[in-house]
Design a protein around this nucleic acid. Structure first.
Length: 1098
RNA sequence: GGGCUUAUAGCUCAGCUGGUUAGAGCGCAUCUCUGAUAAGGAUGAGGUCCGUGGUUCGAGUCCACGUAGGCCCA
């Protein structure tokens, strides 16, 4: 067998499919697992992907990182678990299933049947986990796909039960209340995000209501609200300490307090006049001034500060009802309310303080300057009540109807305008109402049902997080990449409240909490315990997963009191599901020795945003509670994927790119390169243009490879078939080998530090060296007809370098690397010919890194690059030959290096010769500059004097001594060569350059002969261009005719053979009929016409 | 309101503990190669390094204040 030729134009995508088939056929992954089965363990823990939709390109980033570090470790012989995880339970699945069913409310789910619904959720998860699996395989993600974990599995759910049981035994689980946005029709709560999506303009009744002050007769607080139903549950009134309040008396003698500026304030004036957020037909709002005047006029008796009102008590509008008088609140008795208050006891004027954005809670302008606080009916109200230790009243049920105890209101819907009207009528009857108006405003609505949202008190289950210190201690043991992750996690831990673990839904962890009629509850820690305590329904549960509705059938007997209780309806917070994974998947509860082998994980990687209070939090919380240590050692976080312009990808915006499309259009090797190259801290701007950029790098690698294959095939190259010694290696061979070993060393470091972006920067520059220097400068060694030792050395060198390079890259671009490997290693007995992924990561041999040589070649490259820059500055194109490059060096080795490489310089710079000079003066003027960095280190703040003394030192002497290896001239401050920097300025007509141990000078004067040579080459170039434009073949022969005069004519005739050979011309004629192509160009302000004609071959 | 963070070329980003002429890629312009060729290469234009003040021989870098974004918390 020999190495196959490869087409320079490769279809990367097609190759990926071929390699996938190959891996499947060869069972390559299984071979890898068994190869490393006795190796040291490296434990990677996969964060579960939500199996609810097809995988997105943002998932592919994380999965690429997960895969490539696992592949790197496997190349180093590590044994791994390769376990992928699917996140299965939670509201997001329910929402998608509801969409499929075309239903929108919890009620509809219940009508359908929870069992049916939950089974649909399971089916959805199964369907999408399968799809995600196949997409991951397409990405080249090597996992043990038959052994994935699912968070809906029994082992995962029961592991959480065991965890919650421990907490329960430690008295960390309690029942509390919360006030949440609620949709009556859907019968469910909403998150803040969902609220923002569902805001709509609506008209509500704004009511001005009197609250009589107890301490002062006939004096009232004036309240304004657009939710009259909440008045039923009023607890307190808030003022702003700092603003002015007017004491106003109206015609009938009644006295009101209102914010002074509000009297004449034109509410929603702008909205009304610009008809922005205004509803057609709603009249302009009246000022308080107007309202009072309509009631016979008014008088301001006094102006005082809000502070003076704090502490007053008042009579609420519904104090005659039972809920207002129930100690401990209504309907949920909060037994922790030590003050034994009822709502009436809480009717106090308080300071509103600041809201969540730091603004005053109570402001002038809006309303009356008094805010009615109903702790069971508003999120902010609830916080204030909790802070003040007040009770809460929650007047509504799940459908947002008034519950019993609220007189005529009971049973009415609070969002129904008729209900508002009935309440208004009642207030009017009892002379508590001053005024009613229509008030348009933007109000939250349910984004699914379109219903108005209300705020409802719910009872929820919490974990008391008073042991946060334990978690914080663990955070410091983790290697956070990027490092600021640690601070971010601490920040969250410092600020988090107790962990609310309940959610009133259907599909999720069944919280193992059973409640009893005496108000007690019991947490069940395992299936066995449940069976033991079960008194009813076990037979309906047995054989089913521990989910609703099956587990709900089981009633248990309280182990102490013997009371029979039911499970709460709630499901668990899905982060419990993901947080238990280091225990459930590593068999903590049933195979401790296995767990000890793999815990803690060495590495996890996830998308950073959000996870500090989600997955990372739940992992750390659960692990620090159970074991007191972190479940992972290193955490690599990465940012988000955005579209190419930096905008969020959205289905609706049309800028989303689907993984499947991207994979088949750009190819996954390109994608993986793109992900790997990205600095994980920055958002990745994903798109096809960026992919093209990356593809160029891949093509560059492919070109190197296909060049190698083309000639290796021709010459039937077999690796290691001849012995070669160091002496056989050319300078450039040794140079590229040095570079290659350096790259290998750097690559190892980058992988070990989880910084592959740095690796790819190194690779890209190495590829440039390999392609544009090593191969370009060595091409002739491969072309030449003799099959000599030098040719073999060239092959062997390129082979070794290429092999190491693709091995280094194989974790990142597994497909193309595999193809290259399989082809080039066919005849290499040292290599495992089955897969690059079964080979070992290359070893860097330090002794093969010749730093001095690297520096020399680098300076040679610099010489050439600066030569080009000089040409550009002098406006001399490369086509114009120049005379010489003059070199000064005292180092014999360097001198011989330059001499050996002279042809490179001559070729690249289009010069005639490289000459050597012994006179520094010929290169230009020298200057000495202080090396501040060194001087600072040496003299500290005392560097002024030594710095000045540098100007007294002779630069030429310094440089001369330096280049000849002599010591630095003596001076009073004991300065040495490291304390100065030497610069060089060349004479006119030349350009000089100072490299490490040599000086070069390019002569930019153009002699008449050189100029004419340039003229000829220009002409040749013109004709070559014409050949191309005429679409002639490279080997077509032509006849030329042209209006060549004067010097052009001379220069052609003087160099006739050369000229004709270059352009493959068989004859130059005076006149030509029927030319194939003609063109003209300007020379010395004269238009030159040229005609060419193809010679028919015969 | 509190915390964190960012601001550098048209765009996306580097710039280590302060140090010499602030870099890269893309884009743009010009040129170039034509035996790896639907590629490749070179050169160039383009920057008040957000602003103001301070520390220093020296500030993109450190400090203070401000401005504008982002994230988190409340």
């Amino acid at each position: 067998m020999s190495i196959n030729k490869e087409n320079p134009k490769i279809d990367f995508v097609k190759n990926e499919h071929e390699i996938l088939d190959y891996w499947a056929k060869e069972n390559t992954f299984k071979k890898l697992v068994s190869k490393n089965q006795k190796g040291p363990k490296w434990s990677f823990l996969d964060g579960p992907i939500t199996a609810n939709n097809p995988m997105g390109v943002h998932h592919a980033w994380g999965r690429t990182l997960k895969d490539l570090y696992q592949r790197y470790k496997s190349m180093n012989g590590f044994q791994q678990r390769y376990q992928n995880g699917f996140d299965c339970q939670g509201l997001w699945v329910e929402i998608e299933v509801e969409k499929e069913l075309g239903i929108k409310s919890k009620k509809e789910v219940e009508e359908l049947g929870i069992e049916k619904f939950v089974n649909l959720c399971k089916e959805r998860v199964e369907k999408f986990s399968e799809i995600q699996k196949n997409q991951s395989i397409r990405l080249g993600y090597w996992m043990d796909w038959e052994n994935s974990y699912y968070t809906m599995s029994e082992e995962n759910n029961y592991a959480i039960w065991a965890f919650l049981k421990k907490l329960f035994e430690d008295d960390k689980i309690y029942r509390g209340t919360d006030v949440v946005p609620w949709s009556g029709r859907s019968g469910t709560s909403y998150s803040q995000m969902e609220i923002i999506e569902g805001r709509k303009l609506t008209v509500h009744k704004g009511v001005f209501v009197k609250f009589a002050i107890n301490e002062r007769s006939n004096e009232h607080i004036l309240i304004w609200t657009t939710t009259p139903w909440t008045l039923s549950s009023n607890i307190a009134v808030a003022v702003n300490r700092k603003i002015n309040y007017a004491k106003v008396q109206i015609q009938d003698g009644t006295i009101f307090y209102v914010a002074e500026t509000n009297l004449k304030y034109q509410r929603l004036n702008k909205e009304f006049s610009e008809k922005k957020n205004w509803v057609e037909g709603v009249p302009k709002l009246k000022t308080l001034d107007q309202i009072f005047k309509e009631r016979g006029g008014y008088e301001v008796l006094e102006v005082l500060k809000g502070e003076d009102l704090v502490g007053l008590t008042y009579k609420g509008p519904f104090d005659h009802l039972e809920p207002q008088n129930t100690v401990g609140g209504f309907p949920i008795h909060d037994t922790s309310n030590l003050k034994k208050q009822s709502a009436v006891d809480c009717h106090i004027v308080i300071d509103g303080g600041k809201d969540s954005e730091g603004n005053d809670m109570v402001v002038e302008g809006e309303g009356t300057g008094f805010v009615h606080i109903a702790g069971g009916c508003g999120a902010i109200d609830n916080k204030i009540c909790k802070k003040e230790g007040f009770v809460e009243i929650s007047p509504i049920d799940n459908q947002a109807n008034f519950i019993d105890g609220f007189d005529f209101m009971s049973g009415l819907s609070v969002t129904d305008p008729d209900t508002a009207q009935k309440i208004i009528d009642d207030l009017k009857d009892r002379n508590l109402l001053l005024y009613v108006e229509d008030y348009p405003h933007i109000y939250p609505h349910c984004w699914r049902s379109g219903d108005e949202l209300v705020f409802k008190q719910v009872d929820e289950w919490y974990i008391n997080m008073d042991w946060r210190k334990k978690i914080k201690a663990v955070v410091d043991d983790i290697n956070w990449i990027p490092a600021w992750g640690k601070d971010r996690e601490h920040d969250w831990l410092d600020n988090m409240g107790d962990w609310m673990i309940s959610k009133k839904r259907f599909w999720g962890l069944a919280l193992p909490i059973w409640t009893f009629e005496d108000g007690s509850f019991h947490v069940v820690g395992s299936k066995e315990e449940l069976k033991e305590l079960a008194v009813e329904g076990w037979e309906k549960f047995e054989g089913n997963s521990p989910h609703r509705p099956w587990v709900d059938y089981v009633k248990i007997k309280h182990p102490k009191t013997g009371l029979v209780g039911k499970r709460i309806k709630d499901v668990g917070n899905p982060w419990l599901d993901a947080g238990i994974v280091p225990f459930s998947t590593m068999k903590y509860f049933d195979d401790k020795s296995y767990w000890e082998e793999w815990f803690p994980a060495d590495f996890i990687t996830e998308c950073f945003p959000g996870q500090f209070r989600n997955w990372f939090y739940s992992l750390l919380a659960m692990s620090s509670f159970l074991e007191g240590k972190s479940p992972f050692k290193t955490l690599l976080g990465h940012a988000l994927v955005k579209d190419e312009s930096g905008a969020e990808m959205h289905k609706s915006a049309g800028n989303a790119i689907w993984f499947d499309d991207a994979a088949e259009k750009m190819g996954v090797d390109v994608m993986r390169w793109m992900y790997s190259k990205q600095n994980v801290e920055n958002n990745l701007l994903f798109g096809y243009d960026k992919a093209d950029e990356v593809r160029k790098k891949l093509i560059s690698l492919w070109n190197v490879y296909s060049f190698f294959c083309t000639y290796a095939n021709l010459d039937n190259f077999k690796p290691h078939s001849h012995d070669i010694s160091d002496k056989d290696l050319s300078l450039l061979d040794r140079w590229i080998i040095s570079k290659s070993h350096q790259l290998t060393a750097d690559a190892k470091l980058s992988y070990e530090n989880f910084e592959v972006d740095k690796l790819l920067k190194n690779v890209e520059s190495f590829l440039d060296d390999l392609s544009n220097w090593y191969i370009r400068r060595n091409r002739r060694r491969f072309w030449k007809s003799e099959n000599d030792a030098d040719k073999f050395v060239a092959y062997q060198t390129l082979y070794e370098v290429l092999l190491d390079l693709i091995k280094i890259l194989s974790p990142i671009i597994p497909f193309v690397a595999e193809r290259m490997y399989l082809n080039i290693t066919k005849d290499d007995d040292n290599e495992n010919n089955n897969s690059i992924h079964l080979s070992s990561f290359p070893q860097s041999n330090h002794s093969r890194i010749d730093n001095a040589l690297i520096e020399k070649v680098d300076s040679l490259k610099r010489v050439i690059e600066s030569g080009r820059a000089v040409r550009k500055k002098a406006n001399i194109k490369v086509r114009q030959p120049l005379n010489s490059l003059k070199v000064y060096t005292a180092n014999k080795e360097v001198k011989s290096f330059i001499q050996k490489q002279a042809d490179i310089v001559i070729d690249e710079l289009n010069i005639k010769e490289v000459v050597f000079s012994d006179n520094i003066d010929e290169f230009g003027k020298l200057f000495l500059k202080p090396n501040f960095k060194n001087l600072k280190m040496k003299f500290g703040d005392e560097m002024q004097e030594p710095m000045k003394s540098i100007s007294t030192i002779n630069a030429k002497t310094v440089l001369g001594n330096l280049l000849h290896g002599n010591s630095f001239p003596e001076n009073s401050f004991e300065l040495n060569k490291d304390d100065v920097l030497i610069t060089l300025k060349a004479e006119k007509g030349s350009e000089s350059f100072l490299a490490k141990d040599l000086i070069v000078c390019l002569d930019t004067t153009i002699s008449e002969q050189l100029r004419l040579e340039g003229v000829l080459r220009d002409l040749i170039r013109q004709i070559q261009l014409m050949r191309k434009e005429a679409n002639f073949n490279i080997d077509d022969r032509i006849i030329i005719s042209g209006s060549f005069k004067n010097e052009l004519k001379d220069v052609i005739s003087e160099n006739k053979d050369y000229f004709m050979n270059e352009v493959l011309c068989t004859d130059i004629v005076e006149n030509m009929e029927n030319s194939d192509y003609n063109a003209s160009f300007m020379h010395n302000n004269e238009k030159i016409e040229i005609y060419i004609k193809k010679v028919e071959r015969g």
